Simulated scan of single mutants.
Amino acid sequence: MQTSEAVGIHFGEAMLLGRSTRVLAGALIVACMVLVGPGAPNGAPSRPLSAEAVRDVVPNRVMTWNLCNPCEESDVDRAAEIAAYAPQVVGLQEACVRDVERIRDYLEDLHGLVYHVEYGTVLRNWGRCGGMPWNPGAYGQAVLSAAPMTDHVSVEYPDGGSEDRGYMAVTTTVDGRRVRVFNTHLAQRRQEAVRADQAGVLAAAVARHDRAIVLGDFNAVPDAPELTGMWELAEDTDPRCRPTPTGTCKPTTDWQSKFDYVFLRGVVPLEHRVHPTPYSDHHLLHTDLDVT
């Protein structure tokens, strides 16, 4: 039988061991917090940036991408798709403000790419963007730019068709020059007359600028009559794509139609690429430009 003194010694040792274990556990937690950092976005893999990940954007590259909404896609994956091509300017359609905020954070925290953001939201929709039923998330367009943006406008079309639609515009820097950038999403398919009116509103705004880049999902093939006004003002970044049956236009959607455009006014296209992606029913379209 152990004496009371021996029991006391063992009890003291146990208390000391327990205290030491707690101190060690606390130190490990603090160390993990230092490694993760307070700025790691929720749901993102927390890891330090590799040297290869920290790089600059391509200063003369612009991109347009319809994110697909509602779609159960990860904003981490969306950010990785954008980071793979690192454009100076990105125009997003079907974009929820909360998603764009997360995408911007992931681009910086996980890929070392820092963007400013402006929104062209025209609708608050709980089904598309979540939030509380009495305070749904904002939905529409967004522009991410590596350079600051000025003169931001957001315009809702007089008739959105089956869903409110609009365009936004900013002035920012591409290829070292200031240029007006538009981003739009026209009415859904089988609403040709509505799209024609919307394209007319957009074309009137674009016509006020000698140099402009127009990004967006126009929901119309190149030879659709409703795009006539845009073709009179600008050219597609693909020089082989024309509003004629003989034009050779790469499809930009999973259903093999070209709906997504980078229209250029007073800007010279150099090289463009269309990239199918598993994270949307629209492909990524980016192009390198000579703005000077």
Rank of each mutant, 00 (worst) to 15 (best):
H10K: 12
G12K: 11
M15G: 05
G18Q: 10
R19G: 13
S20P: 01
T21D: 12
I29N: 00
I29G: 07
M33I: 06
V34C: 12
L35Q: 09
L35Y: 08
L35W: 10
P45G: 02
S46Q: 01
P48F: 02
L49S: 06
D56P: 10
V58C: 00
N60E: 14
M63Y: 02
T64D: 05
W65L: 05
N66F: 09
N69D: 14
S74L: 13
R78I: 12
E81Q: 15
I82Y: 03
I82C: 06
I82V: 15
Y85F: 13
Y85V: 15
Y85A: 13
P87R: 01
Q88N: 11
V90Q: 04
E94T: 03
A95Q: 03
A95F: 04
C96E: 00
I103C: 10
R104K: 15
D105L: 11
D105R: 08
Y106R: 13
L107H: 02
L110N: 02
H111L: 02
H111F: 15
G112F: 06
V114Y: 00
E118A: 15
E118L: 00
T121G: 04
T121Y: 03
V122Q: 13
N125W: 03
R128G: 08
C129Q: 06
N135W: 10
N135Q: 06
A138S: 15
Y139L: 08
V143M: 12
A146P: 00
M149A: 11
M149Y: 08
M149L: 11
M149G: 08
D151Y: 07
E156G: 14
E156D: 10
Y157C: 10
P158A: 09
G166W: 07
V170P: 02
D175Q: 04
G176R: 03
R177A: 15
R180H: 04
R180F: 03
R180M: 02
V181H: 07
N183C: 14
N183V: 07
R190F: 11
R195A: 05
D197T: 13
A199Q: 05
V201E: 13
V206A: 05
A207G: 05
D210C: 01
A212I: 08
I213L: 08
L215E: 11
D217I: 00
D217A: 07
D217R: 04
N219M: 03
A220C: 05
P222K: 08
A224G: 04
M230K: 02
W231Y: 05
E232G: 12
T237A: 15
T237H: 04
R242D: 08
C249P: 12
D254F: 07
W255K: 09
Q256V: 01
K258V: 11
Y261Q: 08
V262Y: 04
R265L: 06
R265N: 11
V268D: 09
P269W: 03
E271P: 02
R273H: 13
R273E: 14
H275N: 03
H275P: 00
T277K: 07
Y279W: 15
Y279R: 13
D281W: 10
H282L: 06
L284W: 01
H286Q: 00
D288F: 01
L289I: 10
